[in-house]
Nucleic acid binder design. Sequence first.
DNA 1: CTTTTCTCTTGATCCAGATCAAGAACTTTC
DNA 2: GAAAGTTCTTGATCTGGATCAAGAGAAAAG
Lengths: 192, 192
Amino acid sequence: MYDIFHKYLEEKITLTSEESERIRSFAILKKLRKRQYLLQEGDVWQYHAFITKGCVRTYSVDDKGNEHVIGFASENWWTGDRESLLSGNPSRFNIDALEDSEIILFTNANFELLCSEIPAFNNLINTILQRSFVVAQNRIEAALSYTAEEKYLNFVNKYPGFATRIPQSMIASYLGMTPETLSRIRSQITRK
Amino acid sequence: MYDIFHKYLEEKITLTSEESERIRSFAILKKLRKRQYLLQEGDVWQYHAFITKGCVRTYSVDDKGNEHVIGFASENWWTGDRESLLSGNPSRFNIDALEDSEIILFTNANFELLCSEIPAFNNLINTILQRSFVVAQNRIEAALSYTAEEKYLNFVNKYPGFATRIPQSMIASYLGMTPETLSRIRSQITRK
DNA sequence: CTTTTCTCTTGATCCAGATCAAGAACTTTC
DNA sequence: GAAAGTTCTTGATCTGGATCAAGAGAAAAG
């Protein structure tokens, strides 16, 4: 289970075996069955989480009880709630498993230690953060300017794996439309 | 003009006078008159830009010629196109001045040098990036789940200064609605 | 296997916000 | 300070996607 993370690191950066061992020593392995929570609204998030197997979603619940899917994450992606981590406030989000999943956790304190001790690791994390920001900005642009169909095509194009793996209702929520609309768009596309 | 940036740094972090001088030595001062461009679509963005006076907007133009405002930035904020900076590809965005503005530029090379030389500076920049990501994520949530009125109230609440300073049509674009809708929402709110 | 419970599809209707239009109120410019 | 742009407001109409509803498939549970 840790192997996958090790491989991920090896692909991205070069580490001495001491550094590599140091990272491993902080890793907390966690398994989640489908529908189990990694984070529940109201709890403070204090980790950095890497997914080695499975798939999770981050969502919020509004006053009227509607769920809004903020994001998905699967193998070789990071997840968590940076807002709660940064502020120390209880999270507004939930993260739960869409499939049986395996996750590696680092406490924030250990993670920061790794960042300060291992420059290559720090760079990797920083690059990921920068990319995440760019992705978020592009999603804002899409949400503001695309039609429902364009949003879906853009999603399929960017994340081909997710379109079949994740329940449609959650994809609809992620894209800011109803499941009915997404269903119609899909059948319309295949008819073309 | 540089004083404002110096003050900003002093407020956020502690620097030796050598470090402070080192930062200053890399600063490129730039003035923009209203409507002038800091970045034009198709150019590669290679800087980090800090605004000491005035206000700019980042926007894209779609196939149909519609402008989509991605963001605003004014005094004591950073701006730029991280996507182009990271990838080295020509930018899809434009950044222009909404008022006569004064901006401090650092080339990316110099900026990275400062980050590696001055840990406190690096931390500051990293914190800003993390916050930017959180802000972007919250904006995604708002775009997906709020009504037009809620989006506007949320905007006014978060950025009280901007609501009066920036032309309504641009705020409307930023919020993903037409200027007519925003006008109606505004008059409806004041009537309450 | 069979029942129960989700998830997806399809149809009918509705509505928030878009579009079109045209006048009013500001800003620039000369 | 008059003329020419802009930007903002207000009204009438339209429409993409939401909502409501009710079966059809799939998947999970017994």
